[in-house]
């Protein structure tokens, strides 16, 4: 039981980071971006390329890990490169596709276009990287036992999983401070609340939209790298997480960053705790079940505030 909770929290933290991007994009641009999952995949693979680049520069064949983790500094540096590059992909996508469609003001067209963009991005990635699963590190990790086996089945967590959980918490806290304490963050929140009023307040809404893509895509990249670190890299990595991301964003209430975080953790826990009940093969269906339940019971989500 405790192990399932821990697993749920770890996958939930990855879902939460990805769901923040979904909820921010939806709140600001008023459309569900089904291409968001690809930011996770591209972020993860770009980090793999950056990692390969670092290793090639140093002449090493594999990364020396920072004990007790399976990865070393090169992966952290790769994260620092992959996140901005993923943001660049998001900005290019907006410039090429979404910004042009936005002028016509039809959300359905934008949603359908995001499906197309997702397909194009996924196939492009598969073209460059192939379909064979990849790993950042092949180091074997020994899970640390936190709770003995005789207490509710016990709990073991690998150092990498702990790192992912801790960094996800730090990232969310930094984002919270950014949104509540900085002028740019407040401008983002103001634009999401009321774009027209934001414009007459002197906020450059187009710049805020670009900032939203950057923040959402970078968080997506971090989530993708975390997913790759704790499991493996596959071209379907982001696509497989898309439903949980949307379930978390809808559950938390579209537009609410903390809602996306709580929603992500709940979806992660629901997926994990469902394993002994319905079997591992149906765990992915839990996100779908969460969406159905929340749409029936509280369609606005847990933390959504009424739109202006």
């Amino acid at each position: 039981m405790l192990q399932l909770l821990a697993d749920g929290l770890i996958i939930g933290s990855v879902i939460a980071l990805g769901a923040i991007g979904v909820t921010l994009t939806y709140a600001l641009l008023r459309f569900a971006n089904f291409g968001h999952g690809e930011f996770l995949t591209w972020g993860a693979y770009l980090a793999l390329s950056a990692l390969g680049g670092f290793l090639a520069m140093t002449g090493a064949t594999s990364m020396s890990p920072i004990e007790p983790f399976s990865f070393g500094w090169p992966l952290l540096a790769a994260l620092g490169i992959a996140a901005p590059l993923t943001a660049l992909i998001a900005l290019t996508l907006d410039w090429l596709l979404f910004a042009r469609l936005r002028r016509h003001g039809n959300a359905i067209v934008l949603v359908i276009a995001s499906f197309g963009a997702a397909l194009a991005l996924r196939n492009l990635l598969q073209f460059f990287y192939g379909a064979i699963p990849e790993y950042y590190s092949r180091e074997i990790q020994i899970a640390i036992r936190f709770v003995p086996r005789d207490v509710m089945g016990g709990m073991r967590i690998t150092p990498d999983q702990l790192f992912v959980l801790a960094l996800a918490i730090v990232t969310v806290c930094v984002l919270h401070l950014f949104l509540t304490r900085t002028t740019l963050g407040k401008a983002m929140r103001a634009t999401a609340m009321n774009p027209l009023l934001a414009r007459v307040t002197g906020i450059d809404v187009e710049a805020v939209i670009r900032l939203t893509w950057i923040v959402g895509a970078m968080l997506g990249a971090v989530a993708g790298i975390f997913a790759g670190l704790t499991t493996q890299l596959r071209p379907q990595l982001g696509f497989d997480l898309l439903l949980p991301l949307f379930a978390a964003a809808i559950l938390g209430g579209i537009g609410s960053v903390w809602g996306a975080v709580i929603g992500g953790l709940i979806v992660g826990l629901a997926e994990s705790l469902a394993v002994p009940l319905v079997g591992a093969e149906y765990r992915a269906a839990m996100a779908f079940a969460v969406i159905i339940v929340i749409l029936l019971v509280k369609p606005s989500g847990l933390f959504a505030k009424p739109r202006q």
Partner: peptide, 13 residues
Amino acid sequence: GFVPQTENVFADL
């Protein structure tokens, strides 16, 4: 300066 008729403040700020 412009003051819209409705929704003229950021309610959540």
